[in-house]
């Protein structure tokens, strides 16, 4: 089955992670122009080293979490007419709730929830002009079942999922739909480090028997962006190999 895409331009928020770069490659192969956000020179360099020179197949754009000026510049320029928005951006703060630093907690939610709401407002308004748009949030199975120390990460993911769900409910009548994907263990980036530190133990809880690889997650995101998946709106989809369904 060949996936079809009505849109041609995508903004990838958190464009420097392995999954985002893998997704950008798939997009370019499907005639979708990805704009990948980065927050520092190192991130931009990483994107360019992975995707090659910015020669008209993709673009990078500066966006720093919590920095409203960079957000306004982005949506006044490179992201003014996006059809798709894919969100990988997520900071980590692993602490027991009873051990967390108050200022860190405040800063974490400000960057990972409140600022995300600002980004979503801009993205949704941009799409509303043309009455079409699709937003995919790459959440985590931690939103359904968090390990010890993941309380803040899970809380930010759950809060963000609700923002996406609300957009799908509120703007669905205007052609703008949303979905959140909850991958389980993925063997890339932060997930690789976690699995490396803990050995095979976490995977014993996964009926699927292994971690996901980045390509299968990116392909699933592509399906969720496709015209065929538009009916999947204002909801969350688990992609964890069955992990959260067992005792």
């Amino acid at each position: 089955m060949q996936l079809e895409f009505a849109g041609r331009r995508a903004l990838i928020f958190g464009g420097t992670c392995d999954l985002a770069i893998c997704l950008a490659e798939l997009m370019m192969g499907s005639a979708i122009f990805p704009v990948l956000t980065y927050r520092d020179d190192e991130g931009r360099k990483l994107i360019r080293e992975s995707l090659g020179p910015e020669d008209g197949r993709y673009q990078t754009a500066f966006l720093k979490k919590g920095e409203r000026a960079s957000l306004e510049r982005l949506f006044a320029g490179d992201a003014a007419n996006i059809d798709y928005f894919v969100d990988f951006a997520q900071g980590d703060y692993e602490r027991f709730v009873a051990a967390a630093d108050e200022d860190e907690v405040d800063s974490y939610f400000s960057e990972n929830t409140a600022f995300r709401a600002e980004v979503l407002k801009m993205a949704a308004r941009s799409m509303l002009k043309r009455k079409k748009g699709r937003l995919v949030f790459v959440s985590s199975s931690a939103a359904a079942r968090a390990n010890k120390g993941q309380g803040f990460y899970a809380a930010a993911k759950l809060a963000s999922e609700q923002l996406y769900k609300s957009i799908g409910i509120e703007l669905g009548p205007r052609g703008i739909t949303t979905v959140s994907l909850r991958p389980g263990y993925v063997d890339c980036g932060r997930g690789s480090r976690f699995l490396h530190d803990r050995g095979d133990e976490p995977l014993k809880k996964v009926p699927f028997g292994r971690a996901l690889d980045k390509l299968e997650v990116a392909k699933t995101v592509m399906f969720l962006l496709s015209d065929a998946a538009r009916g999947i709106n204002a909801t969350e989809i688990l992609m964890d190999g069955g992990m959260t369904q067992v005792k």
Partner: peptide, 13 residues
């Protein structure tokens, strides 16, 4: 509400 949101976007543009 959604009509007014759309109007806000149209005015902005």
């Amino acid at each position: 509400s959604i009509d007014l949101l759309e109007l806000a976007v149209a005015i902005n543009q």
